[in-house]
Amino acid sequence: LTGATSLLYDGNPGFPDMDVVWKFAEKSKMTIFGTSAAYLSTCMNSRMEPGRDYDLTRLREVGSTGSPLSPEGFRWVYDKVNHDVLLGSVSGGTDPCSAFVGCCPILPVKAGELQCRCLGVNAQAFDPQGNILTDQVGELVITDPMPSMPLYLWNDTADKRYQESYFDMYPGNWRHGDWVKFTPEGGGIILGRSDSTINRFGVRMGSSEIYAAVEELPEVADSLVIGYTVNKEDYHMPLFVVLAPGLSLDAILKQKINQKIRNALSPRHVPDEIYAIDEVPTTLNGKKLEVPVKKVLSGIPLEDAVNLDSMSNPQAMDYFVALAEKDRYNML
């Protein structure tokens, strides 16, 4: 853009502490701050108040992407960062190299909601039969071509993986693999990956609502929940938590986590087991890798479950590989 200067931070945004990027924002006097929902959520869960500790009065916009930003995350930005900014949550895809649903400076900001479809994007929510839904949760589908959509994938013989990934469910329409709800006003609410949906006792539930409940607890810094089938019959739903520094996962804390989930959601959402982990596996832009973890725990080899080069912390998968091997040994 004419007259604009790009500011890039090269390094770990959590080293030496979570303040490093906010210090950068103050020092550079930036007006637009683009980050990830994971980073904002981590700052929120760490009880940070950047607007109090740093001069962020020049900020006009905060952009968030990578994963859905919770309503609590929206409120934290306005309460603890700057009350007079445009908070723009954006959702798109790596393969299409573009955003689908995003922000608009002339529309109201609603907590947990993306303001509108991006220009030129015919994004819809489809039911299983391919009917358009409004104010109901459905598959995020792009019904018209976009200039940035890929025509093929590298090393994909006869376009097999390309077709299976995006066009199998709704021929001729790009199914992205996210749950979305479009409001009557045109806003969008992203509810997580549809291919990682948890189906507990016949009830389908999104992982984002479990994260919102669990990560409200001060003892929990981050979390990951998945559901998968064991022995082709039994459905297993474990919860993995990253605890605040200095804490350990004992029976009392497990009970507190389960009670929080039961009260905020329902008894059906309570996990079968809770495990403490060092870190949640994420993509380079901070998105939780639910599907690869699900594949590994289901017995799929690591190299077939995830591209480690696309991860910000590939070593985080080691825990789940070891857990899968342990589970297979116990079943012998």
Rank of each mutant, 00 (worst) to 15 (best):
S196A: 15
V214G: 05
I210S: 04
Y228R: 03
L153H: 12
F240W: 07
G202C: 03
H176Y: 11
M205Y: 06
D168G: 10
R200Y: 11
K181Q: 10
V214K: 00
P171L: 03
D168N: 14
W174T: 06
H236S: 10
V225C: 12
L243R: 03
K232I: 09
Y162F: 15
H236K: 12
E233Q: 13
K181E: 12
N199W: 05
R204S: 10
D178K: 10
D159M: 14
D234W: 14
D168M: 13
L153F: 15
Q163L: 15
V242P: 07
V220A: 03
P238W: 09
N199E: 12
Y170N: 02
A158E: 14
K232Q: 14
G186C: 10
L191N: 07
Y211T: 01
I190L: 15
S165Q: 13
G186V: 10
Y211V: 00
I198V: 03
E185C: 05
G227N: 08
H176L: 11
W154P: 12
V242E: 06
D156N: 05
Y235Q: 09
R200A: 06
G227L: 02
E233A: 13
I189L: 10
T183N: 04
N199S: 12
W154H: 13
P218V: 00
A212S: 11
V241H: 11
G177P: 05
Y211G: 00
R193F: 04
V225A: 09
N173R: 13
H236F: 15
V203S: 04
M237Q: 13
T157N: 10
E215H: 05
L151Y: 13
G172D: 09
S165C: 10
T229I: 13
L243Y: 03
H176S: 07
S165A: 15
D234P: 06
P218L: 01
G172P: 05
P238I: 07
H236N: 11
W174I: 10
P218S: 08
A244P: 00
V241S: 11
N173Y: 14
P218A: 07
N173G: 05
K181V: 05
S194Y: 06
D222R: 06
F182P: 09
